[in-house]
Design a protein around this nucleic acid. Sequence first.
DNA 1: GTCTATACCCTGATAGAC
DNA 2: GTCTATCAGGGTATAGAC
Lengths: 223, 223
Amino acid sequence: MPRRTNTRERLIETAAGLFWRQGYAQTGVNEIMQQAQTTSGSFYHFFPAKQDLLLAVVDHVGELLEAEVFAAAADRSDDPLEQVFAVIDASRRHLESNDFNLGSPLGALAAELSASHPEVRERIAGLFDAWTDRVGALLEAAGSRLPPEIDRRALARFILAVVEGAILEARVSRDLTPFDAAVAELRRHLALLAPGVQPAAARSAQPRPTPRPQPRAADWRAW
Amino acid sequence: MPRRTNTRERLIETAAGLFWRQGYAQTGVNEIMQQAQTTSGSFYHFFPAKQDLLLAVVDHVGELLEAEVFAAAADRSDDPLEQVFAVIDASRRHLESNDFNLGSPLGALAAELSASHPEVRERIAGLFDAWTDRVGALLEAAGSRLPPEIDRRALARFILAVVEGAILEARVSRDLTPFDAAVAELRRHLALLAPGVQPAAARSAQPRPTPRPQPRAADWRAW
DNA sequence: GTCTATACCCTGATAGAC
DNA sequence: GTCTATCAGGGTATAGAC
């Protein structure tokens, strides 16, 4: 039963930002406390150890994924296939608004900790599955616009791979061009599968002018 | 002017393994020295600081990429498009032979250090470019089997994204299925672009029996 | 629930003999 | 070029008053 303030949440949110920017091992508990304006006593009151904060962060990302990314995508278009690209575009904006210092929230932690922290690895695997399910459902909803022999879930996994890889390339090159190129190629792939998807210019540039700023993504952009 | 032994190389190679398994920040100098059977004096004789060893490791990977991966791919097939898939298959074998504890040598370091270590980021960007050039050249060599309007280099970047993303998914799920699925989908993409590429069964399984073990990849597998 | 003070270990790095 | 011994500092985590 929590008593008054939001210290716990503040810790989770600032830790999330720091972990994704710098990595888990490179981020000190001191730094987190300082930036969250808390002290050691509070920290260890909520989290027995640094690793427990990490797990809370991963869960937090999972909630945001659902609440921000997919909900916002549904707001942006009624077309399920365009919603898929809206989800992808959320990653793009995320990358852009953080000056490339922040890639995929999950991807970065996954790469760093999969081998050494089994519990973290499992949770991230669960979130990847959730992402795949959500995108897979959108592909299902596209119905006959995709040929029936195409495995929707496998295609969703493929899209996840493209997005994670594209984020990595963008971070490394500090340039959105490879990201845009990868998304354009992905669009071409879907267009080849399903003539219903307009192929979009092969050039990089903006995928299309954002109709309106997404409403609830305040937190997401703040990182 | 080096005098007698191979201590420097031993340090680089064991550090490479540890960095990719555990991450850079999580690997202590002590651990490296211990596993390389050396002491502090030797370490700091060759590398003024830990970060200098990191840079040497990145350069080392670049050399291996050329010497092992691309050379081995050229040995495996005369067909340039199949050589591309041989390069991809090298990552698969790598993943498999390390029980998923080791993803893309560059991808892992890139994800961890891009934001905080600009010099490392730049070198990795250079190696990604080199990879893209090499694969782009193979796609060029495919000539008229790909439609002329396709930008070969952009397609190579796309392939890199797919591979890096697929490696990440495989690491996180400790399962090669998503990797194989992504490669199968990539094959389908090329097949749709160029009817000359056989689509390969959509099922995962072995991409095809390895004709003979690659000759020079001893080191590569040892990590 | 939050504060201050502090324990204690492991880290990267140095010194100097051989 | 390699060894042993050691340092200074930051790391996570704890104790106990308020």
